[in-house]
Write a protein that binds this DNA or RNA. Structure first.
Lengths: 236, 236
DNA sequence: GGGGCTCACATTGTACACAGACGATGCGAG
DNA sequence: CTCGCATCGTCTGTGTACAATGTGAGCCCC
C-alpha cells in the first residue's frame, strides 16, 4: 500500500535499522525523546510499527521505555557503563576464542575488508559511519565465532557502548584504532588464541582509557537527525 | 475494570511471567503452538497484550515467531543447544567471579534459602517447580553479581536451557543437584574464586552429561521421531 | 510574592476492526 | 488410487479510534 515493500525486510526492520544506525552513528544523542507520533510521521508508518521498533530497542537496552511517559534514548550512568563494558569484555573474550578456532580464509578476508572500510571512513572524516563500522567489525567477528546467543548479546552491548562513548568520551580521539583490529586479525589467521584474546583485552582497555566519566551535552532535534532520509527511502 | 491486579505489575508483566514460568516448568512443551486469540481468552486480555508478551519471549529466544504463521515454543536443534550451553558457560563463569567478590552475608543466606526450597520441591516430587527454582538460583546468583546486562543474558539462556532439557534429557534424573549449588555457596562465602568457578564449570558439565544430543539417526519411524511434540500440550 | 492545587492538553496504553497471508480441505484429472 | 489445483476458513499483520495517564500552565490561597 505504501511504496514498494522491500522484500529484504518488512517496514518493521527498516524503521528499527534506521533508528539503530542513528544511535550507533551518534546522530541520536542520549536522552533524546523518541515520540511515537513524530517518528511515525518521519517514516510514514503508523504508531504500531514505531512501537514495535522502540520495544525491541528497549529490550536491547539502547532505548529507555518509561511507562506512560514515552521512550528516550538511553543515557547510561557511569556505573551502568562499567557494567556494560565488563559484560562486553567477557563476551568478546569468548567470541575471540571461538573465532580463532573457526575462522576460514574467506572470513578473514572479509574482516580485513571491513577494517579497510572503517579506516577509509575515519580517514575522510566520516566519524559517525566509522564508529558504526567499527562496531560492525566486532559483530562480524561474532558471526565468525558462530554462536548465535553470543552474537545477540554483543549486538546489544555494542549499541550501548556507542551511547557510552557518546556520553563519556574524553576528546575527539580515534576510537577503535584500526591498527588494533588488524593485529587481531593477524592473530586469528595464525590461530594463536592466547595472543588474540590478549589483543582483544588490550583493545577493550584502550577503549576504556579514552573515556572519562563526566557529563556530556545532549541535543534533541529529531527532525534534523533523520532529515537525510526524508526525500528518499534509503542511501546506499 | 479488569480484576484488581495492579500494583504487582501491569497485565503485560503478568501474561509474560505466566507463559515464561510455564515454559520453565516444562508445562509448555517445545513446538507447542501459541495462538494469540486462545491466549487472550485464557488471560482475559486482548491480543495486543499477548502479542507484546510473545514478542518479548521471541527476543529472549524461548519462542519462535514465524511471520504470518504464528508463534510456537522454540525447539532448539542439537547444534543450537550446544551454542546455548557454551554461551551459558561463559556467562556463568563471569557471574561466579563477580558474585564471589560481592556476595554479602544476607545474600548468601538468601541463596541458601533458595536452594532449600528447590530441594524441598524435588523431594516432594514437584519436578516442574523444582526446575524453575533451580533456574532462579542461578538468576539470584546473577543478581548478587550485580551486572545488569549479564543478568538479562543469563535469564534468556536459562529459559532456553529449560527447553533443551525438556528435549534432550536422557532420563528422569535429578537436574541441578542441590548439592552442587550448596558447595558453590560455600566457596562464595569463603571468597574462593578459583574453587567457585571450578565448581560452576563442573556443575555445567554435570548438566551437559545428563543430556543426549545423539538421536538424529535417520529413522523410518515417524511416530517415534516426532513423539515429543504430538499430544503433549500439557502434562502434569 | 511564592507555593500548592486544579484543570486542560498532549502523549501513551489498549482494544477493536479490517485486510492479507497461509494452511487445509474437497474436487477433478491422470 | 494418487496427485495437483482451487476455494474456503482461520489466523496474523496493520491501522485507527478511544481511554487513561502524566505534564504543564494558570489560578487561587497563604
Amino acid at each position: 500500500m505504501r511504496s514498494a515493500k522491500r522484500r529484504s525486510g518488512t517496514q518493521d526492520e527498516r524503521v528499527y535499522a534506521h533508528i539503530f544506525d542513528a544511535i550507533l552513528e551518534q546522530r541520536l544523542a542520549p536522552a533524546t525523546k523518541l515520540s511515537e507520533e513524530a517518528l511515525g510521521a518521519i517514516f510514514g508508518v503508523s504508531r504500531t510499527v514505531i512501537r514495535r521498533a522502540l520495544s525491541r530497542l528497549g529490550h536491547e537496552g539502547v532505548v529507555l521505555l518509561r511507562p506512560n511517559r514515552g521512550a528516550v534514548v538511553a543515557s547510561p550512568t557511569a556505573d551502568e557503563a562499567r557494567q556494560i563494558f565488563h559484560a562486553r569484555r567477557m563476551i568478546e573474550r569468548a567470541i575471540t576464542e571461538l573465532a580463532c578456532e573457526r575462522a576460514s580464509a574467506a572470513q578473514i578476508a572479509e574482516l580485513r575488508q571491513c577494517v579497510a572500510e572503517e579506516h577509509a571512513c575515519f580517514a575522510r572524516g566520516d566519524r559517525g559511519t566509522g564508529i558504526r563500522l567499527s562496531g560492525e567489525f566486532h559483530l562480524k567477528l561474532a558471526e565468525v565465532a558462530g554462536n548465535v546467543p553470543l552474537i545477540g548479546f554483543l549486538r546489544s552491548l555494542i549499541s550501548q557502548s556507542s551511547l557510552i562513548i557518546a556520553l563519556y568520551e574524553k576528546r575527539n580521539q580515534a576510537h577503535c584504532s584500526d591498527e588494533e583490529h588488524l593485529r587481531l586479525i593477524d592473530a586469528l589467521e595464525a590461530r594463536d588464541v592466547d595472543t588474540a584474546v590478549g589483543l582483544m583485552m588490550r583493545h577493550m582497555d584502550s577503549v576504556d582509557d579514552k573515556l572519562d566519566f563526566e557529563e556530556g551535552a545532549p541535543s534533541d532535534d529529531l527532525q534534523a537527525v533523520f532529515s537525510h532520509l526524508l526525500p528518499s527511502a534509503r542511501k546506499a
